[in-house]
Design a protein around this nucleic acid. Sequence first.
DNA 1: TCATTAACCCCAG
DNA 2: CTGGGGTTAATGA
Length: 229
Amino acid sequence: MDKVGYLSRINIMEVLPRQALMEVDRDAPMNVVTRGTTILQPGHQGDVLYLLKEGRVRVYKVSAEGKEFTLAMLGPGNIFGEIGSLSTGTEGAYAEALEDTVLCLWRKPDVERIMQQHPQLALRVMEVLSHRLKQMQELLGHMAMGDVRSRLLYLLLRLAAEFGADDDGPWTLISADLTHQDLAAMIGTTRETVSSTLAALSREDLVRTGRKEIRVHRTRAREELEARS
DNA sequence: TCATTAACCCCAG
DNA sequence: CTGGGGTTAATGA
């Protein structure tokens, strides 16, 4: 796919005409980072917006004791970074490339110029960010109130919605290549607890686990979450 | 209820 | 063979 073609698949870019996309492409050259690279660090995030074209990026914070908490997993089509007071939620966080990743680095003056010329883009950004905000608020509610069991169920449902592939009737396969360690970092618990909680959920036939793969029964899981909260 | 510790197995690199 | 990942059980906050 050509470079402009790539750009048009970035969610917020859908609203731009081709000519504007070419302009963005000129301003924000492609950039390849290898798996494991730290893209963002607390404190050092210049006025840059990153457009994620290929690969996966994990956004996380580190506690004083050194424990990591994952804020978001981003896939192709997403944006992240900060320009001035326009924040995508990465402030004070790390961003790490989970695989070899292709992204564009879009600087503040260029972003502002395009936005002034194409107000639809600004509106689109607002939509994307407010959707993200809503999700974070929902997540926050579940994190603050629930026990591990319901936090995990909620997380699995969200992952199923984002990375899920319906394969077997009501069962949804979460194809995000996540370890128990990763799941633990997303709900603020430990590997062992995730493991035994998954085993328990599996006994109740709410999830099915195999080597490196997790399937969720979406309707049953959702009912369970409603019932117990 | 859950974190922690620790011991174990499995498997891919 | 080594290290990462998954599982289970005991203990104690």
